[in-house]
Amino acid sequence: MSDAVDRNCGINETNDEDERELRSGAPGSGHPTGNSVRPKKLILHIDLNNTILVSDAVTKQGTVAALDYFLSTVTWGHMSKGKWEWISEAPSLSPPNKDAVSYYSKFGRVAGFTTAGPGRKFRGVLEEHLAQLRWPADLPADEEFSVRGEDGNLYHWILPSFFQLLQDLASQGREFAILFRTFGTDLPRVLAVVRRALTQGDHPLFPDLPALKLSVSDLPGRIRCSAKGTVLTRGQEKLSSRDGDRAIYQYLSAVEGLGGFQDHFDWWARNTYSILGGKPLWVDPFDASVQHIFIDDNIRQTDEDTIVHPKVFLEPEGSQTRTASTSELYDLCLVQNDLLQAISDSGYFTKRIQSCQENYESNLQQGTS
């Protein structure tokens, strides 16, 4: 499913001289250097299922089944003499060696992975994180913020670490916007629940969210891809990459508050679940004011099996882009979500975004030196 992470691979590293100049910032591009750099506006593209939700309406997986499935994607082994042998002693996003494959990539979805299947050795990990995900017993059930699991227990529907991210970014004085990006059908409900938390202050763990004064557009948009290009629609708004990618990038860079788009699953499937059919992400390394970051559990270092299609602009203010490899932008603009950490660490998303910001600036500054 995934190659080993190379965290030193960034947007200023390439064997092509033109691309190296591109990613370092060309003369006259307005790219700032030194300590006077103003913090960029953050546009955070955030997946839903197995990123901030531990459930999936499309596959009808509840909390327990969704977490059980996720464990099958981050535990590793290989076939030996016709039998599956484990290499992993603990879950990890990256394989422990080059010969390891995830259980999911070998066998697909297996119901009861940690109960009836060979994943029983990871049952304790499942139970530990279910306990951390449980809705506090001293709080009344809420039909929107909490959800009843298959085991009868009550769990958080949207991870607390997501709401913590909003608080952290606001407390840091950061300018940011959130765009939910999903293939699934949960988007309208997520937007409605987030709106309630941000406007009414009804989330019992985050009652001060209305003070952030973040707007929520509960009108879901759509992104549809084809061989002719990409079309983005939301309400009466419509943009097409047939007129160049720049207009879509500028539109997404200018969004405020929180909103979302349903991406094009069929296009991903027709492209064999590879990078070329993934959710498009436009990246402009010449832009001194904006950084786009995509967080998704299905981002993989293997471009033949990843869910985001990064499109990097070739020149300042230009409309032409190239497809960047996942490894090139990993931990700069692409974050492979670790669902276990997102459950157990309330500051997980904040830390990952901070790391991306630092890595992004470091790579650009290396290119200008």
Results as ranks from 00 to 15, higher is better:
Met1Thr: 12
Glu13Leu: 11
Asp18Asn: 08
Arg20Ile: 10
Leu22Cys: 13
Ser29His: 06
Gly34Asn: 02
Arg38Ser: 15
Pro39Arg: 11
Lys40Asp: 07
Lys40Trp: 06
Leu48Tyr: 07
Asn50Lys: 12
Asp56Pro: 04
Thr59Trp: 06
Lys60Ser: 12
Gln61Lys: 12
Val64Ala: 08
Val64Phe: 08
Ala65Phe: 06
Leu71Val: 12
Thr73Glu: 13
Gly77Met: 07
Met79His: 13
Lys81Val: 14
Gly82Pro: 09
Glu85Ser: 04
Trp86Cys: 07
Ala90Pro: 00
Pro91Ala: 02
Leu93Lys: 01
Lys98Cys: 00
Lys106Phe: 14
Lys106Glu: 15
Phe107Asn: 05
Gly119Tyr: 01
Phe122Pro: 03
Phe122Tyr: 11
Arg123Ile: 10
Val125Cys: 05
Leu130Cys: 10
Trp135Ile: 12
Trp135Leu: 13
Pro136Ser: 05
Asp138Lys: 04
Glu144Tyr: 12
Val147Gly: 05
Val147Leu: 13
Val147Arg: 04
Gly149Leu: 03
Asn153Thr: 08
Ser161Lys: 01
Leu165Asp: 06
Gln167Ser: 14
Asp168Glu: 13
Glu175Lys: 03
Ala177Val: 01
Ile178Pro: 03
Leu179Ser: 10
Leu179Arg: 07
Phe180Asp: 00
Thr182Cys: 11
Phe183Arg: 02
Thr185Trp: 04
Pro188Asp: 02
Arg189Gly: 14
Val190Tyr: 00
Ala192Val: 03
Arg195Lys: 15
Arg195Asn: 14
Arg195Met: 09
Gln200Phe: 09
Gly201Asp: 02
Pro207Arg: 03
Pro207Phe: 09
Ser215Lys: 06
Leu219Gln: 08
Pro220Val: 00
Ile223His: 09
Ala227Asn: 08
Ala227Leu: 03
Val231Lys: 01
Val231Asp: 15
Arg242Tyr: 02
Asp245Pro: 02
Arg246Met: 02
Leu252Lys: 06
Ser253Tyr: 04
Val255Trp: 06
Gly259Ala: 13
Asp263Glu: 10
His264Val: 08
Trp267Lys: 03
Trp268Ala: 07
Ala269Met: 10
Ala269Lys: 15
Arg270Ala: 15
Ser274Ala: 14
Gly278His: 09
Lys279Phe: 06
Pro280His: 02
Trp282Asp: 00
Phe286His: 10
Phe286Leu: 02
Asp287Asn: 13
Ser289Cys: 07
Ser289Thr: 14
Gln291Asn: 09
Gln291Gly: 06
Phe294Ile: 12
Ile295Leu: 15
Asp296Cys: 05
Ile299Tyr: 07
Asp303Gln: 10
Glu304Asp: 08
Glu304Gln: 07
Thr306Glu: 10
Thr306Ile: 10
Ile307Trp: 05
Pro310Asp: 00
Phe313Gly: 00
Leu314Val: 02
Ala324His: 09
Ser327Leu: 11
Tyr330Asp: 01
Cys333Gly: 08
Asn337Gln: 14
Asn337Leu: 09
Leu339Tyr: 11
Leu339Ile: 08
Gln341Glu: 15
Ala342Val: 13
Ile343Leu: 13
Phe349Cys: 06
Lys351Thr: 11
Gln354Met: 04
Cys356Trp: 05
Asn359His: 11
Asn363Asp: 06
Asn363Cys: 11
Leu364Tyr: 04
Gln366His: 14
Thr368Met: 14
